[in-house]
Write a protein that binds this DNA or RNA. Structure first.
Lengths: 225, 225
DNA sequence: CCTCCACCACCAGGATCTTCACCGCGGCGC
DNA sequence: GCGCCGCGGTGAAGATCCTGGTGGTGGAGG
C-alpha cells in the first residue's frame, strides 16, 4: 500500500511514517500543503493522510484542489478537534474520514485499511507462497522446503516484492521504485547485488533456482517447471 | 441462543437487545448488577453481555461472584475504557472478552458467537506459555524453567504483550501503543531499555534467548529452534 | 571474437541496537 | 513534612550489523 503523509508537525509525522513503514507500507512525506498537492496529483497513492492545518495550503484546500483536478484518492484528515462543523466542512471538501488528535496508531491503520477498501487484517493474506518458498509476513519468516532462511530487511522487502509479482517480469526500475524508493537511476548495481545475495540464500543446497534473469529486461520469480 | 444483557444505560441496552432479538436470539435483561447476578446464577444462558459499570454491583463483582458460585457462562464486558490494566483486571475476575464503547453491533455479534461456540472448558487462558517460560496472569507470577522471575509492572506488561503475540513480529510502534499508551514517538530508547532489562532477567543463567531482534522491524518472542 | 550486461566479493560508512549510569518522581514509613 | 527507596525514563557511548558502491570476472548474444 502506498501512502502519502502531509503533516507539518515533525513529531506526529515521524510517528505516523514510522508506524506505517513498520507495517510494511511505502510512505512518502510532505511538510506543507503545496508540496502535498504536488505529490498527490500524480495519483499514485492508495490513500492520503492529511493534517487539517498546514502551511502554504491547508488540508481543506489541498483536498479540494485535488478533487477539482480529478484525483479521487481517498483522504483521511488528522485534526486537533473533530467537531461536527469541521466534519461537515471536511466532507464537503472531499475528505473521506476524520481522526482527532491524539489518536491511537492502531485506529489510524484500521481506518486507512477501510478507506483503501482493503479487507482488514483478517482477510489480508499473511503468507505468500511460490513453489516450495514461503513468506510469512506476520512472523517475518521465510522458509524454503521447510528450511528457515533469514533475510536482511532489504532482502526481505525485495523478496516480498518479487513474490507478490511471481511469474511476472519485474524491471530494474520497478524494483528501484518499489523496494528502494529511488525515483531515479543510481547508476550502480545495487539491485544486482541484492538479487545475488537473495539467490545465494534461496538456492542454498542445490535447490532449483527461483529467480530468473530476463536479460535486458529484468527478473522474474517463478517456480521451476 | 439465550443471552442475558446486564446494562443500566437504557439506550445502549435497547440497542443491544433489539439487535440480538432481531438476530433471532432469546434475550433477557437486567439493569443492575444485583438483578443480573440473580438471573445469571441459574446458569441457563449461553453467554452474558455485561456492562463494566453498573449500579448496586459492578460488572467485575458480578462476574467474580458468578465464577465463585461455579457458573462458567462466558461473559463479555462492555466498557468505556479498554486499557490493558482494565483488561487484566477483567480477566482476573473471569471475563472472557472485552468490547470498548462505542462498538459496532456486528462486532458484538461476532464476539458473542465466538464466545458461545468456544468449548466451555477452555475459558480464556489464565496462563500464557512459550517454551519453558510461563506467565500466570492471576497470580502475576512469571517462571522460566520452573524458576521464579520477578518483574516490575512495566516489564510484566511488556512481557505479557509479547507472549500474547508469541511468534509474531511486534513493532516498536505496537509496543509504544500497547504497553506504554504512547500515541507518539518519544524519540528515546524506552522500548529498547526495557527489552534489555527483560532479557537480562529472562535469560539469566545462560538460558537460550527468547526475545529475538528483528532488525529494522521490531522484536519477536519465540521458542529457540 | 567482441561487446555488453550481469554477477559477486569486498569494504567503509552509517544506521540500528544494546547497555549502562544517572536522575526524577512518587510512594511509604517515620 | 522529611527523607529514603525503588521504578522507570533519558541520553550517550559503544557494539553490531546492514547496505550501497566499486571493480574485476565471466558468460550470453551478436
Amino acid at each position: 500500500m502506498k501512502i502519502l503523509v502531509v503533516e507539518d508537525d515533525a513529531e506526529t509525522a515521524g510517528y505516523v511514517v514510522r508506524g506505517l513503514t513498520e507495517a510494511g507500507h511505502t510512505v512518502d512525506q510532505a511538510t506543507d500543503g503545496r508540496e502535498g498537492l504536488f505529490l498527490a496529483t500524480d495519483g499514485a497513492y492508495d490513500v492520503l493522510v492529511v493534517d487539517r492545518m498546514l502551511p502554504k495550503l491547508d488540508g481543506l484546500g489541498l483536498v479540494r484542489a485535488l478533487r477539482a483536478a480529478g484525483v479521487r484518492t481517498p483522504a483521511l484528515f488528522l485534526t486537533a478537534r473533530a467537531g461536527v462543523g469541521d466534519r461537515v466542512e471536511g466532507l464537503e471538501a472531499g475528505a473521506d474520514d476524520y481522526l482527532g488528535k491524539p489518536f491511537a496508531f492502531a485506529e489510524l491503520m484500521a481506518r486507512l485499511n477501510a478507506l483503501a477498501r482493503r479487507p482488514p487484517l483478517s482477510a489480508e493474506p499473511t503468507v505468500l507462497r511460490v513453489a516450495d518458498l514461503e513468506m510469512d509476513l506476520l512472523k517475518r519468516v521465510v522458509t524454503r522446503a521447510g528450511q528457515r532462511i533469514d533475510l536482511q530487511p532489504r532482502e526481505f522487502r525485495l523478496l516480498e516484492y518479487l513474490m507478490r509479482r511471481a511469474g511476472q517480469v519485474v524491471t530494474r526500475t520497478m524494483l528501484l521504485e518499489g523496494v528502494w524508493d529511488f525515483h531515479f537511476d543510481p547508476k550502480t548495481s545495487v539491485v544486482e547485488t541484492h538479487i545475488s545475495r537473495l539467490r545465494a540464500k534461496l538456492d542454498r543446497d542445490g535447490a532449483p533456482p527461483l529467480i530468473h534473469t530476463m536479460r535486458g529486461a529484468g527478473y522474474c520469480l517463478r517456480a521451476p517447471d
